[in-house]
Design a protein around this nucleic acid. Structure first.
Lengths: 281, 281
DNA sequence: CGCATTCTCGTATACCCTACGGAAATAGCC
DNA sequence: GGCTATTTCCGTAGGGTATACGAGAATGCG
């Protein structure tokens, strides 16, 4: 499932774009006297001479997201975004180094949409509910932007959105008293589970939308499988579950159930590693 | 990231291809007298008149897999496979209805490579070891064929390989005594976890291969993140883990640890739902 | 006004999949 | 030995993708 990867091109430029309007204080504090020279060539461009830009990065990124939301990731091609903005394709390259970077920007933007409390902000009581919050926000994000499921998560955009998610989850698990190493590992396994389960749900949506065919209709079309090819002798467990009515009615129900069940069991397992009661911080 | 999906085209033809040489007995048994008429037009083609084929489906599928293994999924294009076989691109369409179907065939072929014991065959003692076997076989499969990580798993190819995997996992969980519904749900959550964790490892490999850059080098290139953009105040938990040396040395180590840790915790959680001891069948 | 600077974008290249339709090869029959 | 039905082979053409290159247009300052 998936697409190209964060450019080896110019990491500094990519970082500057990802953090474009949310500079950390430590860069601003040291030399507020000379604001022009601080990030010399990429962040705050000298507005002296030259043709005025007709777009800005935020607009390009938002258009990409909107197009992908409405008509799929393929619609968010360079040509597609340019047409939606009423400019020539090559004009986009003034604002964004390449397709890859645009995608990174789109991803970090929607990652940042999740409403996760920061360090000193109020949050639900109990670490499990706090993980649930992460899970729900992430699921909602995937539902709003199902194309995310098609974007690889290794080498993610290292922007504010991704960092906020990682920070939140670590801050939730830190009080559990696991070793630092285990805390990090547990956080990774939760992210992995939540992201891929939510991604699967999104992908279902995506495929139904793209093919115009419900999952149920798809299975119905494959009825021959059971009538012609399926061998009961070779598949006794499947047959037993089938006969005991163990299969959900719809693929979506099955996926949702598996999501909740698996997350609950994963958290059960993590909890058993700690001495903390489930409703303690 | 990911790719297209199982064709709404002709499900019967796709099924016949997926099951091409492993027909279930119930189709053969009823009318062995008239072997020609049995699957009239697709499976065993009448070899009467007409030009002799220069290829066969297995060869096409194996070439696709080999190309994808060696040079990435993009190399397994219709043109690429045809060139590797020394025929014109359009010739492939005699053997395979479309790119989608070829991919389905490739996927089911490698799914079937996993060595998972069938119904009456010997297997490890204890359900956790049996799940481990599934996990290890699946991981090895992803390592042999990292391109799998780029193929969507919703609407999978309903061939012998996929069914064998589902059957095995269900047969492992069935003796735990969960409700049929929960047994199925637990199996789905395990598949989901294992597939996506193994997929992530594979994708790491894939990206390192495609970019020629190790993950460590990639992070090194982004050192500016920490020096220029990262705000310690906003990210106390990350900072704490960092200071406590909680981050693994390499991205790969972190992924592998998270894989094992998460799977163990998930199985802990499932086990707690049952009354069966871990080393009982 | 001149001119450095910056943004705009047409063209060209090199891929991808596949609909179409004609050419080539084969088996059986007369 | 041809004739014909059948099957395989595959060139071409059309519609998509990203982006390197370089010419042209707009702007602000001296």
């Amino acid at each position: 499932m998936t697409v190209r990867h964060s450019g080896g091109g110019q990491p500094e430029r990519t970082l500057a774009l990802l953090w474009r309007n949310k500079q950390a204080p430590n860069t601003q504090a040291p030399n507020t006297q000379a604001p022009d020279q601080q990030v010399p060539d990429q962040q705050v461009r000298r507005r002296t001479a030259g043709r005025r830009p007709s777009l800005d990065v935020d607009g390009v990124v938002r258009t990409g997201i909107q197009l992908a939301d409405e008509r799929g990731l393929e619609a968010a091609s360079m040509g597609g975004v340019a047409k939606a903005l009423g400019v020539g394709t090559m004009t986009l390259y003034t604002y964004v180094p390449s397709k890859e970077e645009l995608l990174d920007l789109m991803v970090d933007e929607v990652l940042a949409e999740r409403q996760l409390p920061g360090p000193a902000e109020p949050r639900p009581a109990g670490w499990r509910l706090q993980v649930e919050l992460y899970s729900e926000q992430t699921r909602a994000m995937f539902q709003r932007h199902p194309w995310l499921a098609r974007v690889s998560t290794v080498r993610p955009p290292v922007g504010p959105g991704m960092l906020a998610g990682r920070e939140y989850l670590l801050s939730v698990l830190l009080p559990l008293g696991l070793s630092p190493r285990d805390t990090n590992t547990a956080a990774l396994s939760i992210t992995m589970y939540v992201d891929s389960a939510a991604g699967l749900e999104a992908e279902n949506e995506l495929v139904e939308r793209a093919t115009g065919q419900s999952n149920e209709a798809w299975w119905y079309d494959r009825n021959d499988l059971w009538e012609t090819y399926f061998d009961v002798e070779r598949h006794p467990a499947m047959t037993a579950i089938w006969n005991a009515n163990g299969y959900q009615d719809t693929v979506r129900d099955a996926a949702t159930d598996a999501y909740r069940y698996g997350l609950d069991r994963l958290l059960d397992g993590i909890q058993a590693q700690t001495e903390v009661a489930p409703d303690m911080p």
